[in-house]
């Protein structure tokens, strides 16, 4: 299973300037089920698809409250997310203790970004195997950030991470100009529609596997809706399935999305080819591979 000479630790560059351990960490995010986030001028919404390891098991929590004014959605290794969320809670608490101020969202994300970056410069450890969408409100308004194991943090109008998130992103890219002035309900509807696009075959959104969270400038109380409480939001959708998950072959939209993602992978593959030391195994698995139920998606250790 030895892939190449440059992926034994997270501190070594390959001759082409890549750090493979970080790229593998990004793969771990793609194994996790999807999470979507959106912002308007007044609201931030997070939605996520929960998975249960088996029929009799509970669903893994996908959205975690950090403080009254902010929370996170995760995709990837849930235990890593727990460590990060505990750290974020500490940071939030200390901001309240020292300055009597809810921690500004950017300060919070930078605090975990620094931790993640540290992992890429010290040997012996591994990068975090989880991606986060950090949503919150503060004195400067509403914010949505995506956090990656590389330590990179970017602010978005709308973002999606996790399995088949490209499908959700495609929808967000088409609609994002409308987010800013959307109401809470509209925003949740966009988010759930985007989340619906990430569903696998024979799957549908339901009250057990869908989680919704909202926080607003006027009411800075990060509220998570699960189970019975999520029904009111699911009712905003015309259908709880998408064309792919229904298994109908009429999937022009999806193919568009898949094609885009395929392109991405191809370009990565091209880079790889120019680098003789890297064998083909280093190429990230394509989404088709993930789509196959027996491989990545149903692994029990990513959520």
């Amino acid at each position: 299973m030895f892939r190449n000479n440059y992926d034994n630790d997270a501190t070594t560059f390959s001759p082409t300037g890549r750090i493979f351990q970080i790229e593998y960490a990004l793969e771990a995010i793609k194994q996790g089920s999807a999470a979507v986030g959106l912002v308007s001028k007044t609201h931030v919404v997070l939605v996520a698809l929960k998975r249960n390891a088996e029929e009799l098991g509970s669903y893994q929590k996908k959205i975690i409250k950090i403080d009254n004014h902010m929370g996170i959605a995760l995709a990837g290794l849930a235990p890593d997310a727990r460590v990060l969320s505990n750290f974020l809670r500490q940071q939030a608490m200390s901001s309240k203790m020292v300055f009597n101020r809810p921690i500004p969202v950017i300060k919070a994300v930078h605090s975990i970004a620094d931790k993640a970056q540290n992992n890429t410069q010290s040997a012996g450890g591994r990068p975090y195997g989880v991606g986060l969408l950090v949503a919150g409100v503060d004195a400067t308004g509403t914010h949505l950030f995506e956090f990656q194991p590389s330590g990179s943090v970017l602010e978005y109008f709308g973002a999606a991470i996790g399995a088949r998130s490209q499908a959700a992103r495609t929808l967000l890219e088409r609609k994002y100009t409308e987010f800013a002035d959307s109401s809470k309900e509209e925003l949740i509807q966009y988010a759930l529609t985007a989340l619906r696009d990430t569903l696998a075959q024979d799957k549908e959104l339901n009250q057990h596997n869908t989680t919704v969270a909202v926080v607003s400038v006027d009411n800075p109380q990060f509220t998570i809706y699960d189970d019975d409480e999520v029904v009111q939001w699911l009712n905003l959708l015309d259908t709880l399935t998408n064309t792919r998950s229904r298994g109908t072959e009429d999937k022009a939209e999806d193919e568009e999305a898949e094609a885009e993602e395929g392109d991405e992978d191809k370009s990565e593959a091209t880079t790889t080819e120019t680098e003789p030391a890297v064998d083909a195994a280093a190429v990230p698995p394509t989404d088709e591979a993930i789509d196959t139920p027996t491989t990545g998606e149903d692994r029990m250790d990513t959520d």
């Binding site: 020292v98 300055f99 009597n100 101020r101 500004p104 950017i106 930078h110 004195a139 400067t140």
Partner: peptide, 18 residues
């Protein structure tokens, strides 16, 4: 982290008290 300071008198007082 931020372009403009969001620290106001309330925050400075809390900090100083601590």
């Amino acid at each position: 982290d931020m372009e403009s300071s969001n620290l106001n008198a309330e925050h400075i007082h809390e900090y100083l008290s601590n």
